[in-house]
Design a protein around this nucleic acid. Sequence first.
DNA 1: TCGCTGATTGACAGTCACTATCAAGTGATA
DNA 2: TATCACTTGATAGTGACTGTCAATCAGCGA
Lengths: 194, 194
Amino acid sequence: MSSPGLRERKKQKTRWTIQEHAVRLFVQQGYEATTVEQIAEAAEISPSTFFRYFKTKEDVVIQDRYDDLMVEEIRNAPPDLPPLDVLRRAFLTTLGGVSEEETEQALQRARLQFSVPALRMRALDSMQESIRHLAAPLAERLGRPADDFRCQAFVGACVGALINAFMAWVETAEANEDVSPLITEALSVLTEGP
Amino acid sequence: MSSPGLRERKKQKTRWTIQEHAVRLFVQQGYEATTVEQIAEAAEISPSTFFRYFKTKEDVVIQDRYDDLMVEEIRNAPPDLPPLDVLRRAFLTTLGGVSEEETEQALQRARLQFSVPALRMRALDSMQESIRHLAAPLAERLGRPADDFRCQAFVGACVGALINAFMAWVETAEANEDVSPLITEALSVLTEGP
DNA sequence: TCGCTGATTGACAGTCACTATCAAGTGATA
DNA sequence: TATCACTTGATAGTGACTGTCAATCAGCGA
């Protein structure tokens, strides 16, 4: 029960410091123009250490583990809620909680992810993993195997619609505009068509 | 109207030769394990020349411009066909036409695209462009602006479901198994839910 | 047929992401 | 405190990709 040891706390701190400087530099001078060496220097670590914390340069920006939060939301949803409502609820509450907590950085990371091609690619790829994660608890609710094809396709369809919502948001939104309405409308095509 | 000059024909030939050797080497010894230098050597060109023909190593495999065929299919669909049927028809006929024409290489490229992470990323990214392209004629049918949000979300949802179909196919399918049933089932979640 | 022009190429040098290795430093535990 | 396990920095690589420059070659007019 004791708080994580000093070793662990230092690791967390180092990880956070790297990310902080990296995002700052990316926003200031662009993603491509920023080298890992610069990030390492700013964070006062060696380039080797950078790659011990993040497998690739892209990972500094990606690293969203909101999946687990969403999986939790899906598990906690009322048992008679229709699948689409379950997912919409999970997305909205998770994003709502996040954007209140991590204010500026989360937004900047989101913008970077959808505006820098290399990062957009990476984000899309990690969504494939997310789909598998999210489909499992949904399948569970329906009494199907965790890797049920229809559930994965369904979650895939939802995420596919959501990506458009996010991109539209990034392209047009004012600083503090809420994404929620876009998400709701994007998901509605699943039941009502275009 | 004369056939393209010798210069142009040589370029086409060089391009094709590079691609041929590249795909062969990728399949033989893996994507990561194959260096551009090896490809250049096999194709009897210099590494510099390789990058003049393909912006990146990934581009040798990607280069899919089936979008235009699908757009054509959407435009040609009966005017009273529901949107989902329009898209399903477009996907099925386009893919059917392709797989008959380009036999072995197309399949190998498809497998490479969905099994090598770097290439999967790339393919996913190009799908975002595809979504915009495909949404336009669909919006046109419905009398909406070309960049209609709901149409893009709808096509995004379809593509999201389809990606899962393709990945399931790549992971499990025997050599000549047909993708069509998977596509049909994946798209059915749009109307029937999971 | 000859020579000019612009496109295409190869060779070379350099940058940067990323990996492997090894020795030194630091936290945890007895 | 002494020992062990983990973490780190330094170093030396590999491979993708870029820029430059001189040599070559197709195409075209004289």
